[in-house]
Nucleic acid binder design. Structure first.
Lengths: 145, 145
DNA sequence: CCACTCTATTTAACATGTTAATTACTGTGA
DNA sequence: TCACAGTAATTAACATGTTAAATAGAGTGG
């Protein structure tokens, strides 16, 4: 029963980090000339898909911690990528919506981003790509199974 | 041929982030009382497994960027978790080795860490756990397939 | 109305991620 | 030996991750 840790070469956390790096590298490269980060890209993607959202929901869907979102939103507002408005019913709450400049970035890069995703899908094959997403989902405690 | 991005709910990068968060949360919790971070734990694990390493190799095996390792190593040296020595042959190069206090942290937490890993393996099942590691490996451009 | 509690968000402090520039040292060829 | 290219590591600057504390507004029972 001697408890043994797997070699770091077969460590799940490290494998996740490296895979993420492998997947994000081309996306970061794509975004390099736009001056936005991968997290800002994620915020734009979520807003573009779901429409205006309150900050909590946005943070959740973009997988950002709240303090990170606060800073990111400030940056993005200053860049004119989003707009922030207070909820008049509950003035603690805030709504965030994508601005035209933000939409533009999405429009300009959707095709290329889709191509990058398609490349990974092809690398693994459709079936295994879906398998991977399912397995990853089972490691996410937030996912309602 | 309209290029379409997948919904963010089926996005590979987001799935990787969430899975990593799910896997790391219990490990961070385990480390909370030691005062070391998950990255410092990774450094200790690699040093413990491979013995003394030069900084480049250590950064590579722990999946840390070099500037991060520089800061982390400084912190860990000040805490007495590692020692750093210059290579006398090539004085640019540096060797890093784990110190007794570092060994102690590894020893104190190996059992619990192994149990956490075992939990995830059980969640997915042995076969799917291995499948996951293999699929993740195929997304890592650094992995020689 | 008021103390109290809860919730949404922000701020603070420190650690790491990321890219670019810089420093220190090594090896090489003129 | 000296200028120069290359390598190992550090430093700098900015963005995000992470946890804890602080603010601000909303809701509730007395």
């Amino acid at each position: 029963m001697a408890p043994r840790l797997p070699s770091t070469s077969r460590s799940l956390p490290i494998a996740l980090i490296r895979a993420r790096e492998g997947v994000m590298a081309p996306i970061r490269e794509m975004l390099a000339d736009t001056g936005i980060t991968e997290q800002q890209w994620r915020v734009l993607r979520v807003l573009s898909e779901y429409g205006p959202l309150d900050a909590s929901t946005l943070a959740d869907r973009a997988s950002l911690l709240f303090p990170s979102l606060t800073r990111i939103a400030t940056t993005m507002r200053e860049k004119g990528l989003i707009t922030q408005t207070r909820d008049s019913d509950d003035r603690r709450r805030q709504f965030i919506r994508i601005a035209p400049a933000g939409e533009q970035i999405i429009d300009d890069h959707t095709a290329q981003a889709a191509q990058i995703v398609a490349g990974f899908r092809e690398t693994l094959g459709d079936a295994q790509y879906e398998t991977l997403l399912d397995l990853l989902g089972r490691l996410d405690p937030g996912a309602r199974s």
